[in-house]
Design a protein around this nucleic acid. Sequence first.
DNA 1: ATAGAACCTGACCACACGGTCAAGAATCAT
DNA 2: ATGATTCTTGACCGTGTGGTCAGGTTCTAT
Lengths: 218, 218
Amino acid sequence: MAGRIREQNRALILQAAERLFADKGFEGTTIQAIADLAGLPKSNVHYYFPTKERLYRTILEEILQTWLAAFGRFGEHDDPAEALASYVIAKVRLSFARPHASRIFAREMLNGGHLISPFLEDELRPWVEERAAVLRAWTRQGRLRPVDPHHLLFTIWAATQTYADFAPQIRAIEGGDPDAASQAAIARSVAEIVVRACVAQDDPGASTSRRGQAASAA
Amino acid sequence: MAGRIREQNRALILQAAERLFADKGFEGTTIQAIADLAGLPKSNVHYYFPTKERLYRTILEEILQTWLAAFGRFGEHDDPAEALASYVIAKVRLSFARPHASRIFAREMLNGGHLISPFLEDELRPWVEERAAVLRAWTRQGRLRPVDPHHLLFTIWAATQTYADFAPQIRAIEGGDPDAASQAAIARSVAEIVVRACVAQDDPGASTSRRGQAASAA
DNA sequence: ATAGAACCTGACCACACGGTCAAGAATCAT
DNA sequence: ATGATTCTTGACCGTGTGGTCAGGTTCTAT
């Protein structure tokens, strides 16, 4: 059973640290607090992660991997409405499923993005260029309204992540945290806004009835 | 000329502190760093602002006032497309004009919103309810598609603030910081997305013209 | 059973931080 | 001019932090 204790304690620490880093940021989080939340003495945290920075970077790496996996890879021959809607819905789901991860990512951006700029350059940017090409192709085919692809993607990212990053704002307006049903409704609602914003009304290649399910919201 | 030195040094400190709080957060910013950036000795900072928290709160108060002023107050009898477009454009402008303020606000949200929850409850929420009523009225009049007003507003806020809060992401994708012309284009582009998303097309059922619906930018 | 590896942890350290203070310099009111 | 007020600042302090370490305990392979 080599490494079982190791794995378990590492997981415990990572879990506690992710939450605290998300809640209070890197500087606002103390090793002591992580240790307390994980139910371990402080020295034990240092046994598994020699420095606070190493611990933080470990968490950040994992988050970037998750982000990348959720990007989705819609192509030129997909149906625009369907592809965009499912992308938006996947992103909203991720926001609700891993709010801590989203907020750590957001903090990294606010801090200037120095730690993630390799990720942005090497992973995100190529992905964006590929997707932008798809969007432009759709527009050429008359299936998408002429919209700046970059700004559309920025808007989608922003609109979906806001439910994790700005949760207190949502809570104050909606009067509480959304339950599972509300989360699904939110996903549909945002997807609908995006689709309506840019998918051509008389899309020649797609069945318009498929969009009909994204109906009104309460 | 009583208080001239006072006002000048206070302004110097506030300016330096706003930038550092935006860049590194409350915990990540030291009084020493603020003093250095302001060109004053540390003790002098404490002379004008007894504690770090007081300094921070002073800055936060001002930011909330600015936010509130920029909210805009469109009403039931305004033109939906024009009202929404000009609101979006004003918000994008504010993001570019005061990126530090936007990021401090964003950090406050990420931190759980404890310091601003009175603002959210007493100022933001009533504003949202009024605006939601206007949006619903527009929908009843057939001038707006049926869209959840809350989610529409969340999307607008998120889409506009992302240009300040996630600047490194924009920089990585666009290949640099947007100049004045790009900023205007961004404002128009986002406004267009929003307007298209929710403003009713002239005649439902008839073939819609795919072009020429660009929002009127101020 | 036993050697060795992996794991645990209380005590400790250097240091940077927010904040204090008292003594001096500049400014102001009269 | 002069006393009062405001402003300036270097030296200092208590505290909390990230990180170290040595000595101990538990596990594992043979």
